[in-house]
Design a protein around this nucleic acid. Structure first.
Lengths: 110, 110
DNA sequence: CGGAAAGTTCGATTTCTGTCGTAGAATCGA
DNA sequence: TCGATTCTACGACAGAAATCGAACTTTCCG
């Protein structure tokens, strides 16, 4: 198990962040973290296989959207609101607001 | 040649817009349109084959990021700033500001 | 009318993403 | 120490997206 590394604030890249956000599963994660709570991988995507979920958490971490902290055998994640706001002011807010105005799946159910 | 159709403002979808923006070629287009100028397809991506470029313009149109207007044999494109600001206030601004702070290729050259 | 220009569409190819099972590491509690 | 829990790593596969040449449409102009 590799150490949890994150790009630092100055390395955040708008294109990478947009790529990370442009996915329905990852938007679900971001949305759940919006309240500020620290959440474990397991709690957010009960319907998704662990290995798939892990992939999405990683994309969000690697892009700098989330910060991870290992606590024993679990990993606690938070939104990097401070860093995102510093580098891309308003981005997170507008995405979260837009998500709130939509159903949980982003309006993709029949 | 099909008519140029656009999703209307109420149909704009944050996830679709993020997907459209999460691509380096398309970000180049958006960046060039940021000044408010109406531009033709041919003027923005001289290095990209026309058929590839056409694909990207289409993604941007279909997602609602751009508005197209046919003028004879050319197509004039503009950013849908009004609609994007109405539905996702601040999104375009933060993306454009972030792009301005980066090199033209988004920092991907060696 | 004929040819050039601007874009699109189509189809083939390649490349990138997402999905998921399996296996493994680390931690905890009994 | 054994087994359960939590999560990651790997590898295979499928589907989606990007790329691009070739053919086509429409328009403009000589």
């Amino acid at each position: 198990m590799r150490a949890l590394t994150h790009p630092d604030r100055s390395q955040l890249h708008i294109e990478t962040v947009l790529e990370a956000l442009a996915n329905p599963v990852r938007l679900r994660i971001v949305r759940r973290l919006a309240a500020g709570e620290e959440l474990t991988c397991g709690t957010v995507l009960p319907d998704v296989p662990a290995s798939s979920a892990s992939h999405h958490w990683r994309v969000l971490r690697d892009s700098g959207v989330l910060r991870a902290r290992r606590e024993g055998r679990i990993i606690l994640h938070t939104l990097r609101r401070d860093d995102l706001d510093a580098r891309f002011p308003g981005l997170l807010d507008v995405v979260l607001t837009a998500l709130d105005a939509e159903p949980d799946d982003g309006g993709r159910q029949p």
